[in-house]
Every structure is written in C-alpha cells, then in structure tokens.
Design a protein around this nucleic acid. Structure first.
Lengths: 201, 201, 201, 201
DNA sequence: TATGAATGAGTCTTCATTCAT
DNA sequence: CATGAATGAAGACTCATTCAT
C-alpha cells in the first residue's frame, strides 16, 4: 500500500533519459511521443501522467541539461589560487563536460534554434550563459585586482572567453574535422586567457 | 517572338523569399506549405512545380543563404594593403551582413540544428565555414610573411577568429542583451586580431 | 475483472465489413479512407490503428475473401459416395457462394487486376485457385480409380472444370444477361463433368 | 501551310500506344497523365488536344483493344468446310492473339474490373463477348444442321466454349504455372468441341 | 497510477485539367 | 496545333492528446 516514495522521481528520470536519446537522435519534431514511449519502456498513459505534453517534456529536458549545470564552478570564484589556474580548471571542466555530452550536442542546437520562438527556452539558455559568464567575469576581476591580469573590462573579457568557447563548440558540431574537442581548451588559453596576463606572468 | 523572360528564376526567387520569411518567423516545422503559398502569392501547384517537397525548399534556402556568400571577401586575399586592414574590412563586412540578416538568424540556427541529421546541410554549412576560414587563414599567413603579424599558426588563428565571431553571434541570438551586434567587430579586433600584431604595430 | 473482450477482433471485422462495402461499390481507387471511416462508424485514427494503410486494408480484405475459403470442400475428398455426386456438391456449394457474394464480384475483379502488379495478391489468388483445383483434381482421380470416370488426366480435367466455372462467372459479371448464376452449375455438369463419366453411367 | 492530312491519326496512335504501355505497366490509377506524356514524347497540351481527359483516353484504348477485334472471324461463319475445322481456326487465331497481346493482359482485367462501375466499359466488353459468342454459336448451329454436331443448344454450347477460353486465360493471368497459353486451344478442343461431335466424327 | 485504444484536426503531397503564350 | 507553367481540390496519413477501464 505504501507507495515507494521516489517511484515518481525514478519514472521521471526514466522518461527524460528516453526523451534525451530519442530527441538527440531524431530531433524534436521528427521524434514522436510513441518513440519515447517505446524507448522508455513505459506506456503512453504513464508518459502523459508525468509530463503533460511533448512541450513540457522538452522544457523539462532543457532544464535538466542547462539548469544549474555550473554549480561546481561556482566554488572557484572566491577561493585562493591564481585566476589563471582557476580559469584553467573551468576550461578543463567544460571540455570534459563537452566530451561527456557530445552525443547530446544535437539537442543543444535544437534548443538554440527553439530559443527564437520560445521565451522560456531563451530564458533558460540565457540564464545558463549568464551564469557561466558571471563566474568567468568575477574570476577575471579578481585576477585584475590581484595584479595577475592586465586592466581590462572583465565583462567584455568574459564574453570573449565564453564566445570563443561556444563558437568553437558549434564549429566542431558542424564539422568535427576542425579540431579535437580537447583542443578547444588550448585555443581558449592561447587566444583569450594569455591575453589577460601581465607580461611578467 | 517575345524574349523568353526568365520567369522561372523569378518564381524561384519569389518562392524562396516567401519561404525565408515564413520559416524565419515560424520555424521549419511550424511553418506549413500553405503558409508559404499564401506568403508567395502563388498557388500550391506552382510551389510544388518549382520545389518538389518542403525539404527541397529548405535545402534550396540553405544554399541561397550559405552557398558562395563570401565571394566578395575572396578579393581581399591577394591584394596590397596591411593584413590588419584587410581583416578589418572582413570584420566590418561580416558585421554589416549580420545586421542585414538579423531577422534570418532563427533560420541559421535551425540549419545548425538540422546539420546533426542531414548530411547535405552539414556539408553546406561546413563548406561555408571552411571557405570563411580559408580566407582569414590566408590573409593571416600573408600578414605573417610580411612581418606584420607574429609567427602563429594561421589555421589555428583563423579558427579562433571564426570561432569567436560565430560564438558571439550565437550568444547575441540567444540574448541580445549581451552586446550590440556592432560591437562584435570591436571584440574580435581586441581579443583576436590585436594578438596577431607585432609589438611595433 | 472484466474478461478482456475481443474488442480488437470485433473492430477489425467492423472495419473490413465497411471496407468491403465501400470498395465493392466504388472501387479501390475511387473509395477514400474517409468513406470507410464513415461507413465503419469509427474514427480515422481507429481505422489506422488497426490497418496502417489503405493498402494493408485491401490486402487484409483479400485474405478474408480468398484465404482458406474452401475448407468446407476439403471434407469431400476422401469420403464415400460417387465422385460425380461429390463434384455436384462442390458445384452447388460454389454456385450458392457466388450468389451469396454476388455483390462482391467487383471486388474480385479488382483483385484480379491488382494481381498484375502485386505479388502478394497474385500469390493469394493463385493459392486459392490451386487449392480449389487440388480438391477437384483429387476427386476426379478417385472417380477414375473407382471406374466411375474414364481415364483422363485429372489435373487437366480439373483445370477445365475450374476454368469454365471462373470464365462463366466473369462473363456473368460483365453481362448478367448471359445466364442465371444458378445455371453455371448445370453448364459445368453438362459440358465438363458429363464428359468424365463412363458410358454405363 | 497544308496540314498533313493524317497527322492527327498518327498522333492518336502515338498517344494510344504510349497509354497502352503505361497503363499496362502501372494500372489506370497509378499511371499519371505525365507518365503518358513522357512515354509518348508529346507535350501535355498535345495529349489533351487529342484526348480531352484521362477517362476519354482509357475509353479510346478500350475501343482500340476490344472494338471489332473479331472481324477476321466473321468470315468463317458462312463458308464451306466442317464446323469443327472452322472452330479450330478460331481457336488457333484466338490463342495466337492471346500470345501477341500477353503483355496487355493486365489492361484487360483492369477493364473487366472497371466494367462494374462504368456502363460504357460494360457495354464495350459485353459487345465484344457477344460478338465472339455469336460467331461461335452460328458455326455450331451450322454444324448441327449439317449433322456434323449432335443436337445441342448452340447458344449454351458457345457460352461454354467462350467461358472456358476466358476462364483459362484468367487463370493463366493470375498464375502462368497452370499451363502454356498454347495449350488453351487443346483444352478447349478436348473438353468442349469434342463433345459436340457425333460419334462417327 | 497505468494502460493502450481511440480521436480528429492538421499536413504534405499528388495530379487531372486548364490556359496564356 | 503545341507548349508547359499554373491551378487547387482532394486524399492518404500522422501524431499529440484524451479517457474509459
């Protein structure tokens, strides 16, 4: 009689996993709810019990992928250590994450495309980038304050950092020939971070 | 007797114009062929006479937007003038173009998303970026050869240039708050091109 | 609790009944799925739930009409009684069946026409005729063995029997003026079966 | 300026030839007017100039195939020679014709199927069979009158003759394994004509 | 909660036919 | 007579969503 308390969370995970796979492979529009039903191993009724529309499912997936995905970098902001090293940790972490979710890249660009017409998508994506930018910006600021970095506009610098990272990821997505995903980190360091550093290093 | 007017090319333009508008506003999937029929002012039959499926229409649009859109920069490669100045022309030109087709940005990211599942889309986009990269790379190389630029890997440098440009554009697309489109040029110059230049400038 | 009623089989019957009527009246091509939807009293979705295309529906109908429709004659093969009498039972049974499904005749010739381009149709029809032929042939053979029939090739004789029956049915279909359907039996007996019998009868 | 007088007849033949091929291969409904346009080498306008609808084309084809196709047998009715021999000529001629137009058989059964819903088709086919029947019937009658044939009902006998011929042709169409087309003649003679003959033969 | 049959509005696409040139 | 672009009504099929059980 006693319902297992987290059966619900389990089901939701199960469904989002299935949706993630199906959407990544087929795209939001090509994929049908039935595809997700089959992939999840649940019934159609169950699917709709947990997510009341295809749209809700997409949005939930958006959240799972982008919401709060940067909590682990937050801890790098107000700690000791050179700004350079901390940016490095972020770069490495981001690259590792990119590698881990490489198969979800199609999903990411589906979300970007969706952003044009869906405010909620725009806001979630925007929030994510803003959060990312904020972390970078504050670290850069700390680098400037400590004399480690030259006197630049931290926001603009963080934007360049973020922009190059995202741009390279997109180019990789369109054509993996450009580079190894791993090299994105090196390029970021060479073309952006190194420009921050004062000559004495 | 009447000189056969190129009615056919005219019609295709008419249709692509309509498709461009409709797709940009509604997205590939939301937009219906009927929407395009109405927007174009033609009949359904005429639409299908010129493009035999919705897909063919999308692909034709892709070509019109991305194919050979860089011919005007090609002329900047083997000419006199500092590499810096020529990159500047490209930057300005690109930014102007971005402004001009701002309303088509949704389309562009639809194409990027499509790239995951459509080889032809991937190839067209990839070809476009490769062409762009090639032009930048060659100018950088000339800058290096002439002593104007420091000794860097032109391909990698061009990739950084292209990546930052595209990344900023994407961030702008998701959230225009980041910057003015116009400022992309300045950021590119400050963070990428200036890094190329020898100290005596 | 409720014994799962065979709702599914019921629905399929309901759909095939509707399809039979509609197709017989309008022909396969003239008839639309909507016609069948209306005739069946179901919804479009239900129709497609059970038969996933118009084609599948046509093929299912083919099976229902021709597959195993001769089981009741099978029992006449290895039993006592004169071959003549048994052929007579078959003739009467076939004629009765023809009368019963007179309204489906258009369907039958649609299937024959379809046979030219659809292997599965060809095979189902062919199988039906082969089965029919086989039964006749074996009874004739038994008649020969028992001395009731003259020494003829049972396969060829059965082919003549089957051919005349089908030919008369087709002529009747094109123009009912030729004869009463009921008379097909008499003609078969007079022109084919009587030729089998030894002079002493 | 002077129009070649029979250009028109030429064109019509050209179109009917094309239609015959296309319809025989694809069926009336599957075949499109464009298919016929391509096969004929004419333009769509020309096609419609000569035949004002697809339907008219089908009907014209029906006429070309069935109308008056038996004139050459007509001459066999009131001539000398045994009835048996004359029936034989008809059998041989019919079989030869069947072989010649074997590739048009699909068309024939399309017409039969069409007969259910198109009075004009029914009448043309009916007329053809009636003409055929009439010839046979009159020859049989002459055979009876001359004492060559036993005293049977010539109409019924001719019907059996025609029915068996058509039935075997249909069985052959559905499954050529049954027999060689050539053997239809032998079967007709053995099972029908031989039954006509007086014992002294 | 769970099931899966049922719904029906919505879409792409086809194609016989027309008609300006 | 001939061309082939243009028309638009019609039709097969899809699929997100609902709901009786």
């Amino acid at each position: 009689m006693a319902p297992k308390p987290d059966r619900s969370a389990e089901r939701r995970t199960q469904i989002l996993d299935a949706a993630e796979n199906v959407f990544a492979q087929m795209g939001f529009n090509q994929a049908t709810m039935d595809d997700i039903v089959v992939e999840s191993g649940l019934s159609k009724g169950a699917l709709y019990w947990y997510y009341k529309s295809k749209d809700a499912l997409i949005l939930a997936l958006l959240d799972r992928i982008f919401a709060g995905g940067l909590a682990h970098f937050e801890g790098l902001v107000d700690v000791d250590g050179s700004a350079s090293e901390r940016l490095d940790v972020i770069i490495q972490g981001t690259v590792q994450e990119m590698i881990r979710i490489k198969h979800l890249m199609p999903l990411i660009y589906e979300f970007v495309a969706l952003a044009a017409r869906r405010k909620s998508v725009r806001e979630t994506l925007g929030g994510y980038y803003r959060h990312y930018h904020d972390i970078i910006s504050r670290i850069i600021e700390q680098g400037i304050d400590s004399g480690e970095f030259v006197d630049i506009d931290p926001d603009e610098a963080a934007l360049a950092f973020l922009g190059l990272g995202e741009g390279l990821a997109m180019l990789y997505f369109v054509d993996p020939q450009w580079m190894e995903l791993e090299n994105i980190g090196a390029t970021l360091k060479k073309y952006i971070v190194s420009g921050f550093e004062t000559s004495e290093g």
